[in-house]
Simulated scan of single mutants.
Amino acid sequence: MESSRANLISDLAATLSHVPSKFVRPLGERPNLEEVVNHGVEEEVVEKMMKVSREFFELPERERVKWYSEDPLKTTRLSTSFNVKTEKVGNWRDYLRLHCHPLQNYINEWPTNPASFKSHVAHYCTHMRALSLLLLGAISESLGLDADYINTVLGQHGQHMAINYYPPCPQPDLTYGLPAHADPNVVTLLLQDQVSGLQVLIDGKWVAVDPVPNSFTVNIGDQMQVISNDRYKSVLHRAVVNCSKERMSIPTFYCPSPDAVIGPAPQLVDHHHPPHYTDFTYTEYYHNFWNRGLSRQTCLDIFKA
């Protein structure tokens, strides 16, 4: 129990006047501190999701730590950083990771405190799945593919989310909430509260993506880059922290099934557009992603054709 308490940032942040050495990034890797609307998801659904998420992280430590685990195979777990067993530098966040499709397979694992947690999160997850399917259909058609092409390629695809909590940080110029990385999945739908923290890399410069009320930020993931044969590119992004306000973000990750074979769509390969990647299973890809940790160096280089 003591080791779990020591690992949770949210329980340490209020007592600290400086960032512990474990969280201090090398000088060249420190942050420089100088969306979808009309989506059809009711505002009440979004508000309840954010409210119950905040209530979870406001619970006493003895309640939250019941869900703590460093086992990445657990489908419901509270943790911190990314891969605490391999990282040399920690990330300034705690997160609750939830698998949420098929919903009936996982909902009984979820926290029962707050009392409304399961109902509000399940309702939100259902809306996110519907929105993800619409988005995948639109992307398929934008590539000249059948509307259900990407959806079919993903197999018995999965969905999971992370409820991220970034406490105020006494020295935000020394660390990250999350370092630069591209998402490993197909697409990510990100819900943010009204505290800025997300940055994306555009033309070599980090640009803040300020929150827009009742909107979702869509991140293209590595699997979409492969399927589209580089027509779409995964987004390099990071999360910075601040010294005065807590921040919450809730990404929903839409993923292939572990045995799904990912490769460039044959319709997007021709004499002028050779395949940029070899075929691989999502399990192969994710194994490399997890062991490498969050990094600006993409795992896709391993699968270059």
Rank of each mutant, 00 (worst) to 15 (best):
S4L: 10
N7F: 09
I9G: 01
S10Y: 07
D11E: 15
D11L: 15
A13V: 13
H18M: 05
P20F: 10
K22P: 10
V24N: 03
E29I: 07
E29A: 07
N32S: 15
E35D: 12
V36T: 09
N38G: 15
E44M: 09
E55K: 15
F56Y: 14
E58M: 15
L59R: 01
L59N: 02
P60N: 05
R64P: 07
D71A: 07
K74A: 14
T80S: 12
T80E: 01
T80K: 01
T80W: 03
S81P: 12
F82K: 05
K85A: 13
K85C: 06
T86W: 03
V89G: 00
W92H: 08
Y95D: 09
L96C: 10
L96N: 05
L98S: 09
H99Q: 11
H101C: 06
N105V: 03
P111N: 08
P111W: 04
T112N: 09
T112Y: 02
T112G: 07
K118W: 03
S119K: 14
A122E: 13
H127S: 14
M128K: 06
R129A: 10
L133I: 12
L133T: 06
A138M: 14
S140E: 00
L145R: 12
D146E: 15
I150Q: 04
L154A: 05
G155R: 04
G158M: 13
H160R: 12
A162N: 14
Y165H: 15
P167F: 10
P168S: 13
C169L: 07
T175A: 01
Y176G: 06
Y176I: 13
G177S: 15
A182S: 15
D183H: 00
N185K: 01
T188N: 00
L189C: 00
V195H: 02
S196P: 06
Q199C: 06
G204M: 12
W206D: 01
W206Y: 11
V207S: 10
T217N: 01
I220F: 14
V226W: 01
I227F: 13
D230C: 04
A239P: 03
V240D: 08
C243S: 13
S244M: 07
K245R: 11
M248S: 13
S249I: 13
S249D: 08
P251W: 02
F253E: 00
Y254P: 00
C255Q: 09
D259H: 11
D259Q: 13
G263C: 10
P264T: 03
L268H: 10
V269G: 06
P274G: 03
E284I: 02
H287K: 13
R292D: 01
R292T: 04
L294P: 05
S295M: 08
S295I: 09
Q297F: 01
